[in-house]
């Protein structure tokens, strides 16, 4: 099989407009694509694979494509809806999900000679904020004073010493109230607001960076795209429509830290958030290994879709 006919594999849910933009670009380049969602399994997805000396080989069949697993040139792992067996009772469903995750999920993490953008297990590692902050420190980024705790006294002492501080969720699972998707509002907290409920689970507190703007830096392979976002919000992600966007260059020391960070996790893509101080220093807030980025091309004209398609088309580690 020639390299040009090797398919790009895409694992995501059906409602993923960012991925659609990349796939339209790949289609224009006549790069073959096989897309599916884990939620399609097993009703619309079948597979068989055998292990040989060269690794796993076999076939995965979707309603519209047949994929030779060993031919995958790259795999874009975005946001699959997750294995689900709603027709089974809870215990049986749990068993079936486990078999699917370790069987098909495990197979998809083990394809030979395939560039992962990103590898699902590396995404899983990098989604832990404590791991991300540790990697950020090791990579030379400046980070805000940060406390992890479930002890009220420690939280209060931190809030007094570093005021103003904020509470950030460590993880945001689906949280529905009357069917409406909710998230935690990122707001300053004061020591007197912190009561015994801190003991109930793990919390992350962080000093608020005195910032004049935010930067979203998207790394796609070896390409770095930084956009300065001006808004009056503590968390710009919750207040659309009042922002201005401007492409900016990335300082060389920040660029070195970006690649060091991604290398530590084995990632080839990352969406980094920084707060910029009046002096122009970039403070690391977080890196999302599956972050959104396409709206920034809309806003700034930066050629991000094309860079993403390049990465998947090339299929080799950048």
């Amino acid at each position: 099989m020639t390299d040009g006919s090797r398919p790009v594999v895409v694992v995501t849910n059906l409602d993923d407009a960012t991925t659609d933009l990349v796939l339209a670009e790949l289609h224009g380049r006549e790069v073959p694509v096989v897309r599916f969602d884990s939620g399609d399994f097993p009703a619309q997805l079948t597979f068989s694979a055998q292990i040989e000396r060269e690794g796993w080989s076999g076939t995965l069949t979707t309603p519209t494509r047949s994929l030779q697993l060993e031919h995958a040139r790259s795999l874009l792992y975005r946001r699959p809806s997750g294995f689900a067996f709603p027709h089974l009772e809870a215990q049986d469903a749990r068993f079936a999900v486990g078999q699917a995750r370790h069987g098909l999920g495990g197979l998809l993490t083990s394809l030979p000679d395939c560039l992962y953008v990103n590898h699902p297990n590396r995404i899983g590692d990098a989604e832990f904020k404590p791991a991300g902050l540790a990697a950020a420190v090791q990579s030379g980024f400046t980070i805000p004073p940060t406390l992890l705790t479930n002890e009220r006294d420690a939280a209060q002492r931190f809030a007094e010493r570093y005021a103003p501080v904020l509470y950030k969720p460590l993880n945001v699972p689906v949280y529905l109230r009357d069917g409406v998707s909710c998230t935690v509002s990122v707001e300053p907290v004061t020591a007197d607001q912190l009561d015994d409920s801190v003991a109930g689970t793990a919390h992350l507190f962080q000093a608020i960076v005195p910032k004049v703007a935010d930067i979203r830096t998207t790394v796609i392979g070896r390409k770095v795209f930084s956009v300065r976002i001006e808004s009056d919000a503590l968390d710009w992600r919750t207040t659309y429509g009042r922002h201005t966007y401007r492409a900016v260059s990335t300082p060389p020391d920040v660029t070195a830290s970006l690649f060091s960070y991604l290398e530590r996790f084995g990632l080839v893509f990352g969406a980094f958030d920084f707060a910029v101080t009046e002096e122009g220093n970039w403070t690391f807030l977080e890196c999302n290994p599956s972050g959104q980025w396409a709206w920034l091309e809309d806003e700034t004209g930066l050629p991000m879709i094309s860079a993403f398609a390049d990465l998947l088309e090339k299929g080799t580690r950048p």
């Binding site: 694992v11 699959p80 809806s81 997750g82 999920g105 998707s181 992600r237 599956s290 972050g291």
Partner: peptide
């Protein structure tokens, strides 16, 4: 960023290891 019903919500990927 993955906080919607469609995506991995952190804490480990749901479909893999």
């Amino acid at each position: 960023d993955g906080k919607g019903p469609g995506g991995p919500s952190g804490g480990g990927d749901q479909d893999t290891g």
